[in-house]
Amino acid sequence: MKKKTVRRKSTVVRKSKKKTTLFYGKFLRYSVLLFCVGIFFLLLYHYRNGLAYYFSFKTDKILSEKAEDKRLSDIRNHQVLVKIDGKSIGIDVSEYQGDISWSYVDTLENQFPIHFVLIRATVGSDRLDRKFEKNWLGAKSNKMIRGAYHYYRPNENSLEQAALFIKTVRLNKGDLPPVLDIERLAENQSIGRLKIGLKRWLDKVEAHYKVRPIIYTGEKYYDDFLKEEFKDYLFWIANYNFYREKINEDWLFWQFTEKGTVPGISGNVDLNIFNGDLQQLQFITVE
């Protein structure tokens, strides 16, 4: 009688995936951590000038109680200013800056000369800036290149707005061309009608002063609504983004912050860069 052969089932030993998963998990976490640390040090290096300015000022403040308090926004502002490559710096003001001591308005951080100022003159079809006349004369007495701008209200008659500006502002030799400030969309008219109104204001003001006006607006507004149809005009663009540190080649002026500090002015003030040096700035003034 044959003996029955009993075969044992072989046990298959499978490698555990747990160790592999743990390894890749740790590797991924360390990689992300190293990446974040690397980005952090790159940012420190990139903003080294602004950070050095900020922290040195804080150190000085301990020694001098008269020093004004600085903010983190000044890191980026200083970073922009050290890269201007000889370009002219200016400010723009309105009644919101209150009474300005113009004889003190000379430099930023005792390092960067202020060459020009753009002053709000009129708003819509019926309102004068309450400080325009005082600011207009003060800038002139301080030997600054000055310019006047009109804040455009899309829902009001464009020709009446132009007439108010012309009645209010008298440009002299050495002043900058007039500026149209457009920031809002119309509530009761199409984009097409708004553009017609803007063109009427620009045409009437150009006919009076014999010089083509400049248009002020935000970068997105410029890209979305004005860039193509108003390409024959020069633009003054507002962009406060932290990542932007140089003026675009297509812009005449760049308003790079609304949180500047200037001697002679209480509170915040807008800072601007002209896309050229002082001699080139003088070249575009009214003759």
Rank of each mutant, 00 (worst) to 15 (best):
266 S>C: 00
6 V>L: 14
98 G>F: 02
126 D>Q: 08
153 R>W: 12
279 Q>D: 15
218 G>T: 11
250 D>Q: 13
179 V>I: 14
74 D>N: 12
86 G>M: 06
29 R>Q: 10
273 I>H: 02
22 L>T: 06
16 S>V: 08
18 K>I: 15
229 E>V: 05
100 I>K: 01
173 K>I: 12
199 K>H: 02
139 A>Q: 06
222 Y>C: 02
161 Q>W: 06
144 M>P: 00
252 L>Q: 09
199 K>Q: 14
178 P>F: 05
275 N>Q: 00
255 Q>V: 05
85 D>N: 15
255 Q>L: 07
233 Y>I: 07
229 E>Y: 04
121 A>Y: 05
199 K>T: 07
49 N>G: 01
136 W>P: 09
219 E>N: 15
32 V>C: 11
182 I>W: 07
100 I>Y: 01
259 K>N: 11
6 V>H: 12
238 A>P: 01
13 V>E: 14
47 Y>A: 00
192 G>Y: 11
266 S>T: 13
125 S>F: 01
15 K>Y: 09
44 L>H: 01
185 L>A: 12
8 R>Y: 13
168 T>R: 11
11 T>A: 12
167 K>S: 15
77 N>M: 04
40 F>L: 13
274 F>M: 11
168 T>N: 09
193 R>S: 14
254 W>A: 06
28 L>V: 13
221 Y>H: 10
93 V>A: 09
116 F>R: 03
277 D>A: 10
122 T>V: 04
17 K>T: 12
161 Q>A: 09
177 P>R: 09
216 Y>M: 05
15 K>H: 07
221 Y>K: 06
145 I>P: 00
94 S>H: 03
110 N>T: 02
270 D>C: 07
137 L>W: 04
234 L>A: 12
272 N>M: 09
275 N>F: 01
279 Q>E: 15
158 S>K: 08
75 I>T: 09
96 Y>A: 05
172 N>Q: 13
109 E>I: 10
70 K>Y: 09
210 K>I: 03
240 Y>V: 10
46 H>V: 07
100 I>D: 03
52 A>H: 10
216 Y>T: 04
142 N>D: 06
213 P>F: 02
189 Q>A: 10
208 H>L: 00
149 Y>I: 02
20 T>R: 14
179 V>Q: 08
241 N>S: 15
186 A>T: 08
271 L>W: 03
201 W>D: 08
9 K>A: 14
254 W>P: 02
264 G>Q: 07
201 W>C: 06
214 I>V: 15
66 K>D: 13
214 I>K: 08
226 L>A: 03
157 N>K: 11
30 Y>A: 13
2 K>Y: 08
164 L>C: 06
172 N>C: 06
155 N>S: 13
172 N>E: 15
243 Y>P: 00
105 V>P: 04
134 K>A: 13
13 V>C: 06
248 N>V: 02
136 W>Y: 11
279 Q>R: 13
188 N>C: 04
161 Q>T: 03
45 Y>G: 06
30 Y>G: 05
210 K>P: 03
62 I>M: 12
62 I>N: 13
157 N>P: 07
80 V>N: 00
140 K>M: 08
233 Y>S: 02
165 F>L: 05
162 A>I: 04
108 L>W: 07
20 T>P: 01
239 N>V: 01
135 N>A: 09
6 V>Y: 15
143 K>E: 11
251 W>Y: 12
249 E>K: 12
79 Q>I: 00
133 E>H: 08
200 R>A: 14
264 G>C: 06
109 E>D: 14
80 V>P: 01
126 D>K: 12
110 N>R: 11
49 N>F: 08
